[in-house]
Design a protein around this nucleic acid. Sequence first.
RNA 1: GGCGACGUAGCCAAGUGGUUAAGGCGGGGGUCUGCAAAACCUCUAUCGGCGGUUCGAAUCCGCCCGUCGCCUCCA
Length: 519
Amino acid sequence: MKVFNTLSGQKEEFVPQGDEVTVYVCGINPYADAHIGHAMSYVFFDVVRRYLEFRGYKVKHVQNVTDIEDNIIAHANKLGVSVPELTQKYVERYEEDMKALNVLPAHGFPRAMGAIDKMIEIVQGLIEKGFAYAVSGNVYFRVRNVPDYGKLSGRSLEQMMAGARIEPGEDKEHPMDFLLWKESKPDEPSWDSPWGKGRPGWHIECSAMSIRDLGEQIDIHGGGQDVLFPHHENEIAQSESFTGKKPFVKYWLHNGLLKMHETDEAKMSRSLGNLITIREALEKYSADAIRIFVLSSYYRSPLTYSEETLEAAERGAERLRQAASRIREGNQGEAQIDMAGYRNRFIEVMDDDFSTAQALATLFDLAREINRADETGMDVSKACDTLVELAGVLGLTLKEPEALIINPDYVGKLVAGWESVEQNLATIQTIPDEAIRVEIGNVVGLIDRNIESIKEQLGENVEGTLVLANEVIKAQVDLRTHLRVAKQFQLADEIRDGLGELGITLEDTSQGTVWKRKR
RNA sequence: GGCGACGUAGCCAAGUGGUUAAGGCGGGGGUCUGCAAAACCUCUAUCGGCGGUUCGAAUCCGCCCGUCGCCUCCA
């Protein structure tokens, strides 16, 4: 397989250095909820990992948590909580978000605060080798001693100096020298070091944890394009200078950045920070939809968030789910679908620098063929298995969204919807077939009793309300079936419309009526 | 100012020298259905503009127009 390596600027054959592929992905600074941009990066690297494993590699995936830096301290102070309190909260919320997005947890989530010793060791080593110098309580990296500084971001020191945005630090030897260790202010978290009380600089934590947990030379280091410079550039400089080994990282992978499209949501988010958190997105869209949104374009290209595009992704997710949940036994023999062909095509495109867009296209083509075969009554179970398996490599579950979300508003609609239908039920007295009339009467009675129970325990017994609501929906579907048999289409349609108000769609299939919750 | 991307149908987006220019969403027509929904069939682009290279370019080169990212904490 081939991967695009930022370091060389081209696609290269992927050859890991050892038996185990070592992967380090730049993680979060936990002082706020993760947003869709984070989702984009972590979903992509999750696919990288899943695909490597699918291809038979053993993978060791480490993702750091930078739990000490300026922003975190600032936020903690503002909120009046301690730094660990703040970071712990957002680490936990991040874990929940990733679980909801079906992102596999890394094998390790080392925290910067837990790697101070290693950082001090590296800084000290760099000083000894002449790559760093201390000025009062600060330690700087000496950029000029690294001839190939700038190789990752494709710029030279001269070019960078030509930029107008560099301000020479007071005590730096060179304007591009960067901080390895920072003298702390009195009220900040600090650690004892050979240079006095201080805390880590901005890039050293990743070098320390990568070297400590994965070794001096690793296979893949990932992150967003926004951390390419200076963060990753500096990581290379300090790591290679410290270990004396090149390359620090064999393949650098950088995903494009997410842009916020404001026109759709202009009313909603007028503030400048037009961020949408993962939580907010998950309220509106399924994890599969969000993943499809991310994976439907090349990972190195920028992506624009818009409601319209997410809606489209959701419809696409539904299409795949529909195919994956086909009735699996047919009576016309097994479907003749070239599964190996689809699998090979999937591998071929994914092998080409994770072309997830084409991988998805493969799944959609397979889905169509499954539907087609299913309609002719053939057994499509094996093809469904293949679809689910390959979708799984992209981290898609193809499971129906949770049945119901119960809140007072929802229950209110359910009750109101039923009451409005019930008002018109008098017409059933005109149904000639007595058996049907009796049947309908029974179902109506059942619904009435459940509705009463729901009203009684509303707000007290959430679980129980959920069960009853499901019963009511099922019974209404049942009632509608009877009404259709009795040709009472107007009433039947009223029930369907009422359920539609609740976000429930009915499908009349040859196997009976099924209902689905649409997001 | 420096470095680097991108511009393909109504929208999202693959493709990077020769294929009928993937796929998704949307839209039109049709099949199925009491009507729907779902599904299936079918239609829906000549690739920002202008030149050039080539037997042949969306794909290579040049210029122009337009959009964007990084250079500062940021996935």
